[in-house]
């Protein structure tokens, strides 16, 4: 593990048991297939891809939340974090073993409505992690909560309000304040703004940039909207059916997308600018296949405009075009 990296994911494979039973054993579905990436401390990685691409599964595995609801999930590969020079593998870490490291990795969910306990006031929600991770007294905790609320741009009176009395933007701020309260090193945000109004999204994205600097965080952000990743993240990884098909510095990948899928994704984004001539777009055929019916060879070949015979025969190797910019395609 390189010293400057805080997180290294190596050949991560995640399999769920499927509903279908084979003789004596269950069929397994591979939701994430040999995913690897490195993240330097203070960096920010955007994970993009359509629904079913496995991006949420990857981040839940990093935060060690998969086994809680699906105890039969199999995780292989390594999720290494670097804590004070020590290397720790979080993949398959036990519940009790994980306890020490939970506070280092915090996650913010997409739906601010369901990610806050409806019976707790905002103040209590932000305070709760302090009870588990610090030995602060009551007044110190209140001070800390107020500090966090100030940092996340929450008014004082939000302290006593319940989630259903807050707007979507305020709820997402409460989620962020809660995540910050444990002093994490890595902050994961799973589609943090997609449920918010357009005029509020910008505020929350700016808040992410601010806290990332101020709290010296490493950020992993999932977004299906590439323009959000472009504006917040320094690195990007594009996923399709459980694989990373292209990754690199955000500006390099978005300026010179190498993989046909990335090209199609970029071309599909509606651009809020007037053009007298309608631009030519790459429109993919069909839907993302179900994970149960993954195409052989290259996973993207069933929708790829460039698909050739070789694509169904074997899987493309990862190729580097410029330094740090990798993609997996024969062409």
């Amino acid at each position: 593990m390189k010293a400057e990296n805080i997180l290294e994911v190596k050949d991560l494979v995640i399999e769920y048991p499927s509903g279908r039973k084979k003789f004596l054993s269950r069929e397994r579905l591979r939701a994430v297939d040999r995913v690897s990436f490195n993240l330097p401390a203070g960096g920010s990685l955007g994970l993009a891809g359509e629904s079913g691409s496995g991006k949420s599964t990857v981040v839940k595995a990093i935060a060690n939340l998969l086994l809680f609801n699906n105890p039969e999930t199999k995780i292989r590969g390594e999720i290494l974090i670097n804590i004070a020079g020590k290397e720790i593998n979080l993949a398959n870490m036990s519940r009790s073993g994980m306890k020490k490291y939970r506070k280092l990795i915090q996650i913010i969910f997409q739906d601010s409505n369901s990610s806050l306990n409806p019976r707790f006031t905002a103040g209590k929600i932000i305070e709760e992690p302090l009870l588990y991770n610090t030995k602060l007294g009551k007044n110190e905790r209140a001070e800390r909560v107020n500090f966090l609320m100030e940092k996340t741009g929450l008014q004082e009176d939000v302290f006593f309000r319940y989630p259903h009395e807050l707007s979507g933007g305020q709820r997402q701020r409460v989620s962020i304040a809660r995540a910050l309260s444990t002093n994490p090193r890595i902050l994961i945000a799973d589609e943090p703004v997609s449920s918010l109004d357009v005029s509020v999204q910008g505020q929350i994205l700016n808040l992410f940039s601010d806290i990332q600097k101020e709290f010296n965080l490493t950020l992993i952000m999932i977004a299906h909207d590439l323009s959000i990743i472009e504006s917040v993240c320094s690195d990007v990884a594009i996923m399709y059916l459980g694989k990373i098909i292209e990754t690199g510095r955000t500006n390099r990948v978005f300026e010179n997308p190498a993989h046909p899928y990335t090209q199609a994704l970029i071309s599909s984004i509606p651009v809020p600018e007037y053009k007298s001539e309608k631009r030519e777009r790459i429109i993919l055929k069909g839907d993302i296949p179900s994970i149960m019916k993954k195409p052989s060879g290259c996973v993207f070949r069933s929708r790829c405009p460039k698909a050739a015979d070789i694509c169904s025969e074997k899987e493309p190797e990862e190729k580097e075009i410029t330094s740090g910019h990798y993609f997996s395609c024969f062409f």
Binding site: S199, G202, Q203, E230
Partner: peptide
Amino acid sequence: MIKSIPCFGKKHEGRLNTIPGMV
């Protein structure tokens, strides 16, 4: 609104423009 939404392909200098407050 037009200024505040992140627009793909346009370089943003640091922070996004935002509209304060809420709907």
